[in-house]
Design a binder for these strands. Sequence first.
DNA 1: GTCCGCATGTAAGAAGTTACATGATTCT
DNA 2: AGAATCATGTAACTTCTTACATGCGGAC
Lengths: 189, 189
Amino acid sequence: MSLRIALLGLLSASGPASGYDLTKKFETSLAHVWQAGHSQIYPELAKMAAEGLITVEAEGSRGRKIYTITPEGRDELHRWLMGYTPSPSPRSEIALQAYLTPLLEPREAVAVLERMGASFAARLRELQKLGDPSKKSGYGGYALDLGIRQARMAMEWASDTIAHLSASGTGTDRAEGAADAEGAADSEG
Amino acid sequence: MSLRIALLGLLSASGPASGYDLTKKFETSLAHVWQAGHSQIYPELAKMAAEGLITVEAEGSRGRKIYTITPEGRDELHRWLMGYTPSPSPRSEIALQAYLTPLLEPREAVAVLERMGASFAARLRELQKLGDPSKKSGYGGYALDLGIRQARMAMEWASDTIAHLSASGTGTDRAEGAADAEGAADSEG
DNA sequence: GTCCGCATGTAAGAAGTTACATGATTCT
DNA sequence: AGAATCATGTAACTTCTTACATGCGGAC
């Protein structure tokens, strides 16, 4: 569903475009929002055209097809925006790694968290290169702001967690972590 | 890959378990970290057993199979934890909705953001019901902390964005938003 | 003429969702 | 006896990834 919404959104926001154009937008403006490759985009455009959400407005050279959003397409998009409440993804590799760090020795866990922190910092720099969200009030600005806040929050989490590990882990070995684990892995035996 | 890691992690952290037990854990402890249903879990366990990462330790009543992690399984898990750096999911419905809100009239956009804010607040309450991460130092504690911070950050983003919309949107209609949009939808025509 | 970027597609497979199907045990 | 829960599986479908495949048009 969401791929479809992303395509309708781009066609609505930036006007008629080809599959190729749209693919480029997924690689740039939408890169940190919704990823999709051309092998997914072309078939989806064909389906949407068959369902009347978009139409082929013109055909250019090299078989280039220019799609335009139809009123039905705008309706569908508007309905999704107004009627659907997205939840955070129920699958996060980051949360999974966080969940499992107590399996590691404290020294190893700190190393993993430092690496994660560095990766969040790298992402933050990458997003900041895209511009200042407070100055960019149109498409992408709000999502960019959200991404930047997310990266910052994750960095803080990583360093606070390292601090917590260092505080409770100094001068001890595997034993303490293992004892911890037994008690906290929820109420089962 | 990550489903496999989650299963190995659970078997490593909580000891031998059946597919049924593991399915229950995905519904409880792992619910906000990694979701998977039994129809995905059973075949994956069979594959992992065939590859020697886990073994059937015992068979109980009702055909219940108790799986145990093998040294090879522990290796695989340890390698993933130490050697793999997860990135944020490249597809976020929340970010997509944020990206597209400028397509709406300011009043509609505010309504959408208020609804999102309420949903983040609900998630925060749900996570807080699971316990205080500062007191829960074992499995789940770090991931829970991350989830709580994430929910709080998203709430702040939503209310700041509403404030931004209200500031720039008071006393205007669709026209201003549309002009904004044209300029900001990245460098194309 | 050949290389590069434009432009579109298909195919095979992994991952995830929803629904179907079945049988054993325990509780009332 | 009937209902609920335990316990395992398969099938069909959607979504996403990676790789294969083809042809046009402009630049050098």
